[in-house]
Design a protein around this nucleic acid. Structure first.
Lengths: 233, 233
DNA sequence: CCGTCATGAATAAGTCTGACTTTTTGTCTC
DNA sequence: GAGACAAAAAGTCAGACTTATTCATGACGG
C-alpha cells in the first residue's frame, strides 16, 4: 500500500521520494518547485502539496528565494512508514534492513515481556494459533504460509504489549520478515530451533511468565541478527 | 521548534494538529476542506497543503465526495516528532510520557551496548564530560544545568550506537527528560544513585565493556520507569 | 585601501481566486 | 434489486499577485 492512487501528488511522491531517499540529490541540493512541476507535468498546486509532505518527513526544507533544499540523511524521519518503504525498495536496502533488525532486537523482547502481563485470552489464543501455523508450514517448502503466520505472531506480540509505540512497529517487522523471505536469506525451510522458540514464547505469554517470554524472544532476535551477520564479539 | 512560521499552513497545523491528537474529533469524523479554510481564514490551496501533511501523519484520510475523515488513534504515526510534540502538549501527556519511557527502557540499554563497541574517542570524551557535568550540577538546585548535561549524555549514547534508528530518538528522549524536570517529578536534587550510574556508563563505554554498559543503562531506565510508577511485579 | 553597513533589485516561494473535472455516493425509478 | 441520474466534495489547473530573502551595488567610515 503506497501513496499511488492518492491523486497526482501521490504519483509525484512515488518517484521523487525514492529518488531523494536513495541519495540521488546530495544534501543541500536545491530543487525548484516550478521545474519539478514541469518535470512531472502537474500544476504548481499539486507540486506544492507533494513538497509539503516531503517537508513533513524532514527530507527537504522549503525556503523562500532559495528553493526546496534536500536535508542531510541524519535529519530524515526514518520512522515514517513511507520513508522506510522507499529506502527498503532502494539501493541501501541491506543497510536499512540491518538497522531495523537491530531495532527489533531491542524492542521485541521487552514487548514480549509486557505481553506476558497484559495479553488478553483472545490474544493468547491467536498467539498459539500463529505458532502452530508456523509449525505446520515449517517443512516442505511452504515458506509463504510460514511467513504469514510468522508476521501475524510478531504483530500480536507487539499489539499485546499494550504500548502504542511498540504496536505501531508491527508494519515494520512485517516488512523486515517479508523482505528476508523474498530477497535475502531463507532459501530452504526455516530453522527448526526458531520455530520451537516461537511455540515456547506463546506458552510463556499464556503462562504470564514475563521473564521467560522476554528471554526466549531475545533468542529469536539474536537469531535474526546472526542471519545478517550482525555479531556481538 | 514547531511548524509555526512555516507559512500559513503551518499555523493551521499548529491548531488543527493538537485538536485532532487530543481526540476532539472522534474517529470517523468528517471535516470539510472548505469549512476548515473558512474557519482559519485561509485559501483552499493552503488548507489542502495542511490536510496533505495531516494525511502523511496518518491522522486523517481524504476521500472524494466524503471529505477529510479522522483516523482512529491506532493508525496515527506516533513516531512523527510533530505528533509526539502535539500529544505531549495535550491532555494525554501522562499516557504519552509513559509510552515513551517504556520505549526508552527498551532502546537505551541496547544502544549503550552498541555504543561501547562503536563509540569514537571523541564520543567517549563527550560522554565523560556530560557525566561530570551531571555530577557538578547534582547538588544545590541546579536542575537546569543538570538537565542539559543529562540530555546531552543520552543523545551521545544514541548517536554513538551507530544505528540511525536509535540516533533519531535523541529528540524524543530530550523531550521526555525535559518534560520530567519541568512538569512532573523532580522537585529537588536528582537521585545520587542515578548520577553515579551515568558516570559508570561513561566508564564502561570507554572501556568497551558492552555488557556492563547495557546493564548499567538498564538500571537507569528502570529508575525512570519507577518514577512513573510503571512497575514490573 | 579595505571592511562594514544601507539600499535596492531580482528571485522563487507563498497566497488567493475562480473555473473546471472527476469520483463517489445516495436516491430515484423501473 | 439493478441501473441510471444527480448532487457533493475533493481534485486539478492557470494566472495574477504578494512577500520574504538573498545578492550585488555602492556609500560611508575606519
Amino acid at each position: 500500500m503506497s501513496t499511488a492512487g492518492r491523486g497526482l501528488h501521490g504519483h509525484v511522491l512515488d518517484t521523487l521520494g525514492p529518488e531523494i531517499t536513495a541519495g540521488e540529490y546530495p544534501p543541500g541540493s536545491v530543487l525548484r518547485t516550478d521545474e519539478l512541476a514541469q518535470r512531472f507535468d502537474v500544476s504548481r498546486s499539486v507540486m506544492r502539496e507533494a513538497v509539503r509532505v516531503l517537508e513533513s518527513m524532514y527530507l527537504v526544507e522549503s525556503r523562500r528565494r532559495v528553493g526546496v533544499t534536500v536535508r542531510p540523511k541524519s535529519e530524515w524521519n526514518v520512522y515514517d512508514p513511507q520513508v522506510i518503504r522507499w529506502r527498503l525498495a532502494g539501493a541501501d536496502r541491506p543497510r536499512q534492513l540491518r538497522s531495523l533488525t537491530v531495532l527489533r532486537s531491542a524492542i521485541e523482547p521487552v514487548a514480549a515481556g509486557l505481553a506476558a502481563r497484559h495479553a488478553t485470552s483472545e490474544q493468547c489464543a491467536e498467539l498459539t494459533e500463529c505458532a502452530l501455523g508456523m509449525v505446520a508450514h515449517s517443512r516442505g517448502h511452504k515458506l509463504e504460509g510460514y511467513l504469514l503466520h510468522d508476521v501475524a505472531f510478531h504483530r500480536v506480540i507487539l499489539e499485546a504489549s499494550g504500548n502504542e509505540m511498540f504496536a505501531r512497529l508491527g508494519d515494520v517487522v512485517a516488512e523486515v520478515l517479508t523482505g528476508r523471505t523474498q530477497h535475502d536469506v531463507m532459501f530452504e525451510d526455516p530453522d527448526p530451533a526458531a520455530v520451537t522458540l516461537h511455540v515456547q514464547v506463546a506458552e510463556a505469554v499464556r503462562a504470564g511468565d514475563a521473564g521467560r517470554a522476554e528471554e526466549l524472544t531475545r533468542e529469536i532476535t539474536v537469531g535474526a541478527l546472526q542471519e545478517l551477520d550482525i555479531l556481538a564479539p
